[in-house]
Structure formats: C-alpha cells, structure tokens
Design a binder for these strands. Structure first.
Length: 227
DNA sequence: GCCCAGGTGGGTA
DNA sequence: TACCCACATGGG
C-alpha cells in the first residue's frame, strides 16, 4: 500500500516559503461574492476594474446593487468579459441574498454549510468553485476551494490524475486536513501563489518549485491509480 | 496573431 | 461519463 499524501506538510512548506497571503482581497463579504462571480475564467486585474466601476456607481451597497438594471450591471462589469452572462449571474445571486438574508450576510450564520452550498449551486451560473469561494471567503465556512491552479499543482505533483472531479480533488485535501477555516483560507491562497510563480500552464516544468524537494514524500492516495 | 486568465452550462455520443 | 463549445475582455 502506498503512503498517504501529506497536504499538511505541503501547507507548512508553502506558508514558510510565502507567508500569509491575507485572502480574499475584498473589504466586505458582499464584495467577495461579487468577485467570486466576476473572476470566473478571468484575470483578477480585470475583476478589479469591474469592482472599481461598481464601487463608483453603488458604493458596493447591497440595495444599490440590487436596484441596478441588468444592462447597467453588464456595462459596469464589461472589463471582466462574459459581461452579459455575469450580469445575469450576479442578478440571481443578489436576488438570492435578498430573499435569504436581506443582503445582510451575517444573518446566514445559523444556516448549515451544506444547506447554503446546495442553495448556491442551485443558482444558474454558480458552480462548485464559485459556491465554495463564497462559503469560505465570504461566510467563513471550512470548505476547500478547488480551482484551475489547485488542479494543475495537484496533477503536476502526482497527487491526482488531471481528469479528477471537483469533489474528488476537494476530498483529497479535506479528508486529510483539520477542519480549520483559517488553514483552508491560507492554503488555497498559497496554492494560487505557488501556481502563479512556479507552475505556469505554458511551461510544464516548475523549477525551482518550493515543493520539489519534498516530492519524494508525496505518494498517491491509497485508492488513486486504481480508478 | 496567439495563448492565457482564481468557470459554468448546454449539447452530443 | 467524457469531450466539445460558447461566453469575451485585457495582458504578455
């Protein structure tokens, strides 16, 4: 039987190398929700442009955002691309928040994480990454966010096969880590940092990857490779 | 001009 | 399940 992957050791190595990343880059939980949708398949720089435009128009006030017509919303978020789709998605998310908590995200605190996750996934345009980003970074729930960077880093290090499902990849981490919000928060941000700095899509070699020296201790999970 | 960036949903076999 | 594709802007 192969040894187990040790994500906690990877986390400590990344933290020692890069230090705290202080995610999510937003002032309020509501701004996290907006950014989570806007960043879908989009460079964060363009998201910042859109958030700046939204802030100028609405102050990122919930009632003001909710009152924005969809075409006006689309105009403001234009720099992120997919602006018509994303305007519709933001409308649906804002309407859900309005009905669920009147736009006051603190009022979601008593609602179980699983319930919120299912409701978020029921919103057209909210997939698992967007839902989990909102749960972790806006609502402080202990869920692990899997994104393109997480997938690439995990595949490059042989932790998973590149085609694994979202839930399989998330389970790889959540099954082997303490259920700690601040750890999940930092770990995801550190993986993004690692990927941006050392694990480009174009160049499959990642030298000098900060985890390279630890590679020998990373073996596939017991049930991986038999699927 | 080409590839890439903190995805998602719909269609097809 | 496994691929394919549309959605779209801005930077390297």
């Amino acid at each position: 039987m192969a040894g187990k992957l040790d994500p906690l050791a990877a986390y400590h190595a990344l933290y020692a190398r890069f230090g705290p990343q202080r995610w999510w880059p937003a002032e309020t939980p509501l701004e996290v929700c907006l950014g989570a949708v806007l960043t879908q398949n989009t460079n964060w720089r363009n998201v910042e442009r859109a958030l700046t435009a939204l802030r100028g128009e609405t102050g990122l006030d919930f009632a003001n955002l909710l009152a924005l017509p969809e075409d006006e919303l689309a105009r403001l978020i234009h720099p992120t691309g997919y602006y018509k789709q994303k305007a519709a998605r933001l409308r649906l998310l804002l309407e859900w928040l309005d009905g669920r908590c009147g736009g006051d995200l603190a009022r979601l605190e008593p609602v179980p994480t699983g319930v919120l996750r299912r409701e978020l996934l029921d919103i057209r345009g909210i997939g698992p990454e967007t839902a989990d980003s909102i749960l972790l970074y806006a609502l402080g729930r202990p869920v692990f966010v899997v994104d393109a960077y997480t997938r690439r880093v995990a595949a490059r290090h042989g932790w998973v096969k590149p085609r694994g499902t979202y839930d399989d990849l998330a389970a790889l981490f959540t099954d082997r880590l303490p259920r700690d919000v601040s750890l999940f928060n930092e770990f995801h941000a550190l993986i993004v940092r690692l990927a941006k700095d050392f694990c480009s899509k174009r160049n499959p070699r990642c030298h000098p990857c900060p985890l390279a020296g630890m590679m020998s201790s990373y073996l596939l999970p017991d049930n991986e490779g038999s699927r």
